[in-house]
């Protein structure tokens, strides 16, 4: 495996990790707020809180890892994306900041402050919408370089059906992934009441999730035919994704094996995400940046890979410990351990 394939694969895995953990996190924040205004707060909030509280900061690091890593492996991304993303990137930073601090404020400071819950619930849904713009831009047609000046064509971006399909899919899948996960977590906690509410959310959002996935799939055909054809060549990724989706929804519907159901959700997005990524290559930004031509120098690549492998040696056991204490520990999940 060449360094550039290894590099992009590592980055893509971490972005996928962010997609899953951040979706759970953002969706959970939104459900927390939603349950407050619909008067169901006491029924699902404890579950949401028990999961979210110890992991919020870790979620954020997945994103940082991705954008620091991509500058290391593909330095020119900093130049092209950095120049063109000033405004959308700044909006994303503001949303991430609001979401992060107001979650912590309401968790540790002013508990149950409705305004704080509103802020972190709603900003959580806007973050995936704003971050998904980067994936849209990578398809080409929105970023232009004229006489050495890189700029973003806002008109093309806002009037494009493709960019809107991605935004809608991002928001909808956050709500779907999160509800599927929380159903599993409620099931594990043996909290029947919460499970029923969350299961209904999960089933409700499963329909728009699959519809939007098809919408995005066919928007790519109109926006970037070359990419679409490559996706068709790699069709088995998307077929596998659909099968996983069907199993996941079926299991939740039947209230059976919720753990398997959530693994299927992860596989559903895993297959789709890697199928999309694989067919996107060799382009990192159509038509300016490609995998092989804009890779960093050999010595930096080697150093980054070594550090990455050493880092994994520390990271994997640490993450495992975190999961074991807060996700797989039945006593904790059921709220039988004192929290602070």
């Amino acid at each position: 495996m060449s360094y550039e394939i290894l590099g992009i694969t590592v980055l893509w895995i971490f972005l996928y990790g962010y997609l899953i953990v951040a979706s759970i996190d953002f969706g959970a924040g939104f459900y927390s707020f939603f349950s407050l205004i619909t008067g169901k707060r006491h029924r699902i909030h404890p579950i949401v809180e028990r999961y979210l509280a110890p992991v919020w900061e870790v979620t954020n690091v997945f994103l940082v890892f991705f954008f620091v890593g991509i500058i290391g492996f593909f330095p020119e991304t900093a130049y092209y994306y950095g120049t063109s993303l000033l405004v959308p990137g700044s909006i994303a930073i503001v949303l991430l900041a609001i979401r992060g601090v107001y979650y912590v404020y309401s968790q540790y400071g002013n508990r149950n402050n409705k305004f704080y819950m509103f802020l972190y619930g709603v900003s959580g849904l806007l973050i995936p919408a704003s971050l998904s713009i980067v994936l849209t831009l990578s398809e080409g047609g929105y970023i232009h370089e004229n006489n050495g000046v890189v700029s973003l064509d806002y008109h093309a971006l806002f009037t494009s059906g493709y960019s809107w399909s991605v935004v809608v899919l991002a928001i909808v899948s956050v709500l779907y992934i999160s509800a599927m996960f929380l159903s599993y977590y409620a099931g594990k906690a043996k909290d029947k009441e919460a499970l029923e509410i969350l299961r209904r959310y999960a089933l409700f959002w499963s329909v728009p999730t699959i519809l939007c996935s098809f919408w995005v799939f066919f928007s790519i055909q109109r926006h970037n035919l070359e990419h679409f054809n490559k996706m068709v060549d790699n069709a088995w990724f998307f077929i596998a994704s659909f099968i996983c989706y069907a199993i996941a929804v079926y299991l939740v519907w039947k209230r059976r094996r919720l753990q398997v159901s959530f693994v299927m959700v992860m596989l559903q997005f895993g297959f789709a995400f890697f199928g999309y990524g694989k067919s996107h290559l060799p382009y990192i930004l159509v038509p300016y940046l490609t995998l092989h031509e804009h890779f960093t120098n050999k010595s930096m690549a080697l150093a980054l890979v070594i550090v990455f492998l050493l880092g994994l040696l520390v990271l994997v056991p640490s993450l495992y410990l975190l999961l074991r204490l807060f996700l797989f520990d039945a006593h904790y999940v059921r709220g039988k351990l004192s929290k602070k």
């Binding site: 330095p75 020119e76 900093a78 950095g82 890189v150 960093t296």
Partner: peptide, 12 residues
């Protein structure tokens, strides 16, 4: 990256 893209190109 947003404010110093040319510098980050070298720094990267």
């Amino acid at each position: 990256s947003l404010l110093w893209p040319s510098f980050m190109l070298v720094a990267g």
